[in-house]
């Protein structure tokens, strides 16, 4: 460990007044600054995306009672809601993951614990973002097959 405070020897154990004080070693990049800024910029966008999502799915129409496969198919028939959900997925996951990373850094004091908690967090991030993205891009509003109950399909499907 390199000393970050200037303490040349026992005779001068106390720093000179106004000598620079640092809590940790300086880092080479501005990552934390950009992360801080990202939390704020994504926050502004998430206000619209998440509150809009909740309003359309819980307040309009029949609220939670309207939500089923046909409802999702109706929304994802439009690229507008696909782009909406994709942006919301990525922004909320990046924002939430960075937020939880901060919290882990705050509370997990042992190096090993901190490292493994963050690894688990990053794995959860990657799996969730990949899955959510694939779901939006591979969604089929009119699946066909013996095991598909046609009455659950949206009204625009030929099988109905």
């Amino acid at each position: 460990m390199t000393a970050v405070q200037s303490t040349p020897g026992p005779a001068q154990a106390i720093d000179a007044p106004r000598s620079p004080y640092r809590r940790s070693k300086p880092t080479r990049t501005n990552f934390e600054l950009y992360a801080w800024l990202f939390m704020r910029m994504s926050g502004v966008l998430l206000v619209v995306l998440v509150l809009g999502h909740l309003f359309v799915n819980l307040m309009l129409g029949d609220g939670i009672h309207q939500v089923d496969f046909a409802f999702v198919a109706g929304k994802w028939a439009s690229p507008f809601w696909k782009v909406w959900d994709l942006s919301m997925l990525w922004l909320a996951m990046l924002h939430g993951t960075n937020g939880v990373r901060t919290i882990i850094n705050d509370y997990a004091e042992r190096n090993g614990t901190r490292f493994w908690l963050k690894m688990a967090l990053y794995v959860a991030f990657a799996l969730t973002v990949v899955l959510g993205t694939l779901v939006i891009f591979t969604f089929d509003p009119c699946p066909i097959g013996a095991d598909i109950d046609a009455s659950a399909l949206p009204s625009f499907c030929p099988a109905r």
Binding site: A92, G96, G99, T128, L131, V135, T138, D140, I148, A152
Partner: peptide, 20 residues
């Protein structure tokens, strides 16, 4: 909200399994 979101993406992913 973060914990909910992890579960929520999983339940939404069921649309690719089957409508039922």
């Amino acid at each position: 909200i973060f914990v909910f979101l992890l579960v929520h993406v999983l339940d939404t992913a069921l649309v690719t399994v089957s409508p039922q």
